Amino acid sequence: MGVFTCRTARARGVRGWVTPWLAAFLAVATSHALAQDPARLTLMVSGTAKMIYLPATLAQRLGYFHDEGLDVELLSQPAGVDAESELLTGFAQGVVGFYDHTIDLQAKGKEVRAIVVFSQVPGEAEVVSTRLPATVQSMRDLRGRTLGVTGLGASTSFLTRYLMTQQGLSAGDYTMLPVGAERSFVTALRSGRIDAGMTTDPTVSRLVHSGEARVLLDLRTLESTRAALGGSYPAACLYLQTEWLEAHPDVAAKLARAFVRTLRYMHTHGAEDIAGRMPPEFRRDHPELYTKALAAALPTFSTDGRMPDDGPPTVLRVLAASNANARDKHIDLSRTYTNKFVDQVRERR
């Protein structure tokens, strides 16, 4: 069975600009990655403990990668922008992160493609410290405040920019501060470094339960996501470099089978059973709270891993609000995802 590793991988410094030296380095690294044993894989996860990425750990714990003849190592990187850096340098063969990075990278001249979509909602929530007055009732009321995101260039920053823009606020009307996720996010809110911020479960549920925060805007259900973003929003997914994908379609098919099998398991088993299969440190001091949050999240996960038809245009529109490249350059959404591999799984049933 593959190795479950919760250590944080080191960031590799790709931040949207590519020098000639770095371009050459990436080309060599990619060639090296293509030459490796394709059955031994490293997948970067944008925070293994985040509930939105639970299918990665669950597939590992259930032995579904092993059943496909794959030796998969999962490494945790709190911010999606850092996880994509590991992919571009060839350190990892795939990323379990937000779909919006496939669009962002195409705008920067890099081709990656999502092959399994986990859900149609971000699974995030904007929480505000209970130290703030009760008059803070909307994103607009966060003018002049410091807002926490996992990283600058991370999906939480894309969503925050869009939501604030929708309220008529510009980037100069508030401050975005990268504070990571989970414990580091909690510490930043608790210490007053941030007034509010965007994060996922189980962190949201723990902060609300402790009375330290309240939910200002919820993107954890399909109804609230459509109301805030104007459509379904495919977020958590597995994406791969297109060059690697085209060189190893058989391995990609195995990954897709393992993940679709996991998604089906999630819809045929209860939250208590699934929670019990997670590493103990994921549940920490409040296992009952974790299980409750998971039960609420389970209906938002896909049953088949397919990309929803209205998803990519919605994500592009949101991304374009804060990303000039996505706004000004032609983006071919058909090159950012494929349903080919999950459809093969469905056909084999």
Rank of each mutant, 00 (worst) to 15 (best):
I274R: 01
P234L: 11
L240I: 12
E223C: 02
S205Q: 06
R335Y: 02
V215D: 06
R306T: 14
V251I: 15
P249H: 11
E281F: 12
P280D: 11
H330R: 06
Y265L: 07
E243W: 00
D285F: 09
E272W: 05
T291W: 00
E243K: 14
D218C: 10
I331H: 00
A227Q: 14
A227F: 07
T300S: 13
D328V: 07
Y290I: 09
A258D: 11
I274S: 00
D201S: 09
Y265R: 10
R277K: 15
D201P: 04
R257I: 03
E281Q: 10
R327Q: 07
R214P: 04
V251A: 12
V315D: 01
L216V: 11
F341G: 00
E223A: 14
L263A: 08
R317T: 14
P287G: 05
R261F: 06
A227P: 03
A247H: 15
F341N: 00
E272V: 12
E212D: 14
E288K: 10
V204I: 15
L222W: 07
Y233L: 13
D201G: 07
R284G: 01
A321I: 10
H269G: 10
R317W: 02
E288S: 12
T336M: 03
P279Q: 09
G270T: 11
D304W: 11
D273Q: 13
A293T: 13
R214Q: 07
R264M: 13
S224Q: 14
T300A: 12
R277Q: 15
K340P: 00
T300F: 04
R317Y: 04
Y233P: 07
R261G: 15
G270K: 05
T268E: 14
L217T: 13
I274M: 03
R257D: 08
R283G: 03
E281C: 03
A324G: 06
G270F: 04
A247E: 14
L255C: 10
V204Q: 03
V208F: 11
N323C: 05
G230E: 08
D328L: 11
L217Q: 15
R226F: 10
V315Q: 03
A213K: 08
P287C: 11
K329L: 09
S224L: 12
A235P: 00
Q241N: 13
R261E: 14
Y239E: 08
D310Y: 06
A295F: 05
G230H: 09
V315R: 01
G305T: 04
G270V: 06
P312D: 06
C237T: 15
